[in-house]
Structure formats: structure tokens, C-alpha cells
Design a binder for these strands. Structure first.
Length: 153
DNA sequence: GCCAACGTTGGC
DNA sequence: GCCAACGTTGGC
């Protein structure tokens, strides 16, 4: 089993929105970055654990945990002209973009803030805290996962 | 294949 | 709203 971190803007779709979905499950569409796409398509497996990270908001940090319920499949929004994720250059015979389904698992009592994460020397190598990192789907090591869980309490 | 221009991300 | 950092595009 592997660990991941998915970024999301809670103003658009946050952990509370996931909780309110039927079966507390939602497809993670709209990822339009090739490196993140490769993770979604090739590497993220059923049962993998995911930190939900809230970005671009007043409380930036990890909000809780979700679990992968369905492995990579074609993100249909790339073919929908009405979707903001529409990609006219994507060929239906060879789709560019993929997504997975995740189910809510746990919400932290408090957001585990980016500030706290950055302040922990043991997490200095996390991809999340590297300068200029913009990946919206990234791997988390088992060691990092354990430390973060302990910090979340 | 290079690289300037552009658009986007995301913390602050 | 600012702006640094990055990925993508497209002319050459």
C-alpha cells in the first residue's frame, strides 16, 4: 500500500464536501498536469491512503484522510465542452487525463497546518515543502505518513 | 531542440 | 492582490 497527498481548494471542493457525497465517495477529476496524471493512471492503487490537503485558503494544511476506492480511469470532463476542465486537444481514442475515486476516511480535529509541517525538521524532505512545488497529486513516504499522523493526534 | 512568452499555482 | 516558481506552448 502506498501513501499520497491530494491538494484541493476547499472553496471549490474540500473535505466537508467529500463527507457529504453519497457513500462519502467522489471521483478526483480535473487534474491537468502530466506528472500528477502519471500517478493517477499508473501508480495509485486500490486501498492506498490519501492525505487531503487544503490549499489557497485561510487554513492551509492537511484536513484529513481518504482511501482510494477505484484505480485510474478516464476523466470524462476532458471531453465535455461545458466543463472548465475541457481539453479540446485530448483524443478520445487516447485520452490524456485520468482520475481515481476516493472515499472519506477521517477528518482531523484541527487542520494540520503547513506551518507546523514546515517547522518539523523530520519532514524537511517532503515534496510538499520543497520550494516551488506545484504538484497537486504527490507521493508521501511511509515514514512521512507516520510522522504526520502522530502530529495530527 | 531551444527558449521567450504566457498562463497557472499557491503561499503570503 | 502580489509575485516567485513552474509547466506548457509555439515560433524559429
Amino acid at each position: 500500500m502506498n501513501y499520497w497527498l491530494f491538494k484541493t481548494e476547499p472553496d471549490a471542493f474540500g473535505i466537508n464536501d467529500l463527507i457529504e457525497r453519497p457513500q462519502q465517495t467522489e471521483h478526483w477529476d480535473g487534474v491537468r498536469n502530466y506528472q500528477a496524471r502519471n500517478f493517477l493512471r499508473n501508480e495509485i492503487k486500490l486501498g492506498d491512503q490519501v492525505f487531503l490537503y487544503h490549499s489557497s485558503c485561510d487554513k492551509v494544511g492537511i484536513a484529513g484522510i481518504a482511501e482510494v476506492m477505484k484505480e485510474g480511469y478516464v476523466d470524462h470532463t476532458q471531453f465535455d465542452p461545458d466543463s472548465k476542465y475541457y481539453d479540446p486537444k485530448s483524443d478520445p481514442d487516447k485520452p490524456r487525463w485520468y482520475m481515481v475515486d476516493i472515499r472519506f476516511k477521517r477528518k482531523f480535529d484541527h487542520i494540520l497546518s503547513l506551518q507546523e509541517i514546515k517547522a518539523n525538521p523530520a519532514l524537511a524532505d517532503m515534496q510538499l515543502v520543497q520550494k516551488g512545488n506545484r504538484l497537486s497529486v504527490m507521493p508521501v513516504t511511509a515514514g512521512e505518513w507516520k510522522i504526520l499522523l502522530a502530529m495530527a493526534g
